[in-house]
């Protein structure tokens, strides 16, 4: 009897071929989604537009303690798909990629818009991660034609990024529930050195002088100006805001750019426009101890925190990992109740 039940469970769970088991009319099987993806690629090529895919991967249940059983996963996917379909636009398509993976095709969606879609999805599905079955869900994306030239390649990129994201410090240090300053403290407080991130020191007798931060910010602004047509976002934490800072005069000379630039400094809560940039003055003393820069655009990501450790010496953390940079930007916007944007 038990054997028969197991067999039934196995045969019942060929989701890739028959998505009707999920019971959602807007969920398509892998054949349909592949065909649709190919058509979307042709359409985007023809109209010179971009589209994105998002892969939702169910890694585990109960905070990583339990590998999802087939039956449990099926039940969970029903909730996940139902919630996902409520969040996405009418033109977006949901389908089954593999048993633990749901794929979304988002027509006319560029890189940054797909990141916003992931934020929305993560928020809508947050209840699954904080209540039963305490699921660990990983989101990844890929955009045509930025990441790949064909649909199959695009899905492969998005699938590869699931692993990249799981290997990222973001998941390894479990930053999901942490606040911006908690993340910053964790990053600058540890001795880290791996491919995309490392800690180092500036000032005093170290390799790099204090002025490194200022030069770095100027260099990033130069990149923004050179690359003014590329969409991006830049936050520069400069401790205390002052009109005399050289970076402010650099900002005045910047013409129109597609990068949203914000200067963050300690001060009375208010917003101020400096040319095409915005100065955000926040009444938070933690800003006085830390320089930070978070820069994300379609081609690159860079984030740096420099904590004053002793007089002129600063302990710094920097990264080129887009997942951490994006997460830090998101947390910063949430913690200071800023407009969520990318």
């Amino acid at each position: 009897m038990a054997q028969a039940k197991n067999n039934a469970e196995k045969t019942d769970f060929s989701l890739t071929a028959d998505s009707s088991k999920i019971g959602d009319a807007r969920l398509y099987d892998s054949y349909f989604i592949n065909e649709y993806g190919r058509l979307e690629t042709l359409r985007s090529e023809r109209y010179g537009s971009s589209f994105s895919v998002i892969v939702i991967h169910v890694e585990s249940f109960y905070h990583g303690k339990k590998i999802p059983s087939r039956k449990g996963l099926l039940e969970f996917l029903k909730i996940l798909v139902r919630t996902t379909n409520k969040v996405i636009r009418g033109c977006d398509i949901t389908g089954i990629l593999e048993d633990k993976r749901v794929i979304l095709i988002l027509p006319h969606t560029a890189y940054f818009d797909s990141l916003i879609a992931i934020r929305k999805l993560a928020r809508a599905l947050e209840f699954c991660t904080k209540t039963e079955p305490y699921a660990t869900i990983i989101y990844s994306q890929a955009t045509y034609p930025k990441d790949a030239n064909g649909y199959g390649e695009l899905v492969a990129v998005a699938t590869r990024r699931i692993q990249e994201r799981m290997d990222s410090l973001l998941e390894r240090l479990d930053f999901r529930g942490k606040l911006f300053w908690e993340m910053a403290a964790a990053l600058t407080g540890n001795e880290l050195e791996e491919k995309d991130y490392s800690t180092f020191y500036i000032g005093a007798d170290h390799d790099l002088p204090n002025s490194f931060i200022e030069t770095l910010n100027t260099t990033i602004l130069q990149e923004v100006v050179r690359n003014h047509r590329s969409r991006g976002i830049l936050y520069m934490g400069i401790k205390k805001y002052s009109e005399d800072l050289p970076i402010i005069s650099s900002l005045h000379s910047i013409n129109k750019t597609n990068t949203k630039i914000s200067i963050v400094g300690q001060g009375e809560d208010k917003k101020k426009q400096i040319g095409s940039a915005t100065a955000l003055l926040l009444s938070d003393n933690r800003l006085l101890n830390t320089y930070f820069t978070l820069f994300l655009n379609e081609d690159t990501a860079y984030g740096i925190f420099c904590n004053e450790s002793w007089g002129d010496a600063h302990s710094c953390f920097h990264t080129s990992d887009p997942y951490i940079v994006e997460a830090l930007i998101e947390k910063f916007q949430q913690d200071y109740s800023l407009q969520e944007m990318l």
């Binding site: 180092f200 170290h206 770095l216 081609d299 690159t300 080129s320």
Partner: peptide, 22 residues
Amino acid sequence: VTLFSTPLAARMGPFLRAFSTN
């Protein structure tokens, strides 16, 4: 074609990665 000078301090890997896009 621009000439871009990079620092030679220790642990500059992320910087080099981020600024060598093109």
